[in-house]
């Protein structure tokens, strides 16, 4: 697993009354907004593939309209493959069947989370209700999984290869998630939930 150890000094979240507020710098806010938007696009492409893979008029196409369709095989893109892993490890048939029933729903929920993060960043202050905080936690995870795939971070201890700027963003997202978790737990411990 990773760790969120980093040298940032300014805490990106604070508790005002009972609400968690994100206090990101403008440039950080823009960065997160762009990344979450790109994540939604990446997943959106997969959702379109899922939907177009189903022949028109077929049962699969009807299911896809209801948001419960999906492709029969795992994505080739390593980032998407990690975001949408097989549910069965050594049973290709079961994995494929499960994916066809569930992948589109999973993709749509991930997109909704990313879009909720983007929308929350347009507010001033950026208040994180419990539901929005969940979207943040999950989207920060999905973004880090995506960047880790691009940076070839595959095993514990891998430091990543490639773009230094991307590595910095990866670390920063980990710091955001770590401090958001601390803030959520601090609020819980103090009986504010």
């Amino acid at each position: 697993m990773g760790n969120a150890d980093a040298g940032w000094l300014v805490r990106p979240f604070e508790i005002r009354g009972t609400v968690i507020v994100a206090t990101l710098h403008e440039v950080e806010s823009e960065m997160l907004c762009q990344l979450a938007g790109q994540l939604a696009e990446l997943l959106g492409d997969r959702a379109r593939t899922d939907r177009s893979d189903s022949p028109a008029g077929s049962a699969a196409a009807l299911l896809a309209q209801l948001g419960i369709g999906g492709s029969a095989s795992a994505p080739l893109d390593p980032a998407l493959a990690r975001l949408l892993p097989d549910a069965y490890r050594n049973d290709h048939t079961a994995a494929s069947e499960h994916r066809q029933l569930t992948e589109l729903g999973l993709v749509d929920r991930k997109i909704a989370n990313a879009e909720a993060v983007v929308a929350s960043l347009t507010n001033d202050p950026v208040e994180l209700t419990d539901a929005i905080a969940q979207s943040w936690l999950r989207t920060l995870t999905d973004l880090r999984l995506t960047l880790a795939a691009r940076l070839h971070i595959e095993d514990d201890g891998d430091e990543g290869t490639g773009d230094d700027a991307m590595l910095d963003v990866y670390d920063w997202l980990g710091y955001l998630q770590g401090t958001l978790l601390e803030t959520i737990e601090h609020r819980e411990v103090n009986g504010e939930l």
Binding site: G2, A4, L137, G178
Partner: peptide
């Protein structure tokens, strides 16, 4: 996995 934080 090498990505997810222990706290998470």
């Amino acid at each position: 996995d090498p990505v997810n934080l222990q706290t998470y």
